[in-house]
């Protein structure tokens, strides 16, 4: 019995979270608009970059404090890691280079958008778990 309970524990996933879903879509739009500007000097957009970095820090803190949320947290951490080559890494490159080429911005932005879409899709998929639990509750009572 205890082995069964332990294995069930490992399968638990945080329930769908409307706030997480909304913040992820907001960050996607914010990032998409900002990255279009990466063909211009970084200094002109520094404040917006800092705002996006803050938003990333906030969502990571929020996700960190949810139980059974290891996968969503790991995805946000990869996206926000300046040493990796996704959103935070691209912002860092813009800051270091001061201005990026149009072709590079177009390709790198597509990579970042694909990564954020995965986070959004995963959060949306959690809804099915919540729905299944709700259905069970309705069927029971």
């Amino acid at each position: 019995m205890s082995i069964f309970l332990v294995s069930c524990e490992g399968l638990r996933t945080a329930a769908f979270d409307q706030y997480s879903y909304q913040k992820a879509t907001e960050i996607k739009v914010e990032a998409a608009n900002l990255l279009d500007s990466a063909v211009y000097p970084y200094a002109e957009h520094e404040q917006k970059v800092e705002k996006l970095r803050e938003d990333l820090q906030k969502i990571i803190e929020y996700e960190k404090n949810k139980s059974y949320n290891d996968i969503s947290l790991a995805m946000w951490q990869i996206l926000s890691d300046e040493e990796k080559n996704l959103l935070a890494g691209l912002l860092k490159r813009w800051e270091n280079q001061q201005q990026l080429s149009p072709a590079f911005v177009q390709e790198s932005k597509a990579q970042v958008m694909e990564a954020i879409n995965l986070i959004i899709k995963y959060e949306a998929a959690k809804d099915k778990t919540s729905k299944a639990q709700l259905q069970k509750l309705i069927n029971t009572y």
Binding site: I78, N85, L86, G89, Q111
Partner: peptide
């Protein structure tokens, strides 16, 4: 940079 981003995207 793009090749490495593909590797990171793979992790995602």
């Amino acid at each position: 940079w793009l090749l490495k981003s593909q590797k990171d995207l793979f992790l995602m």
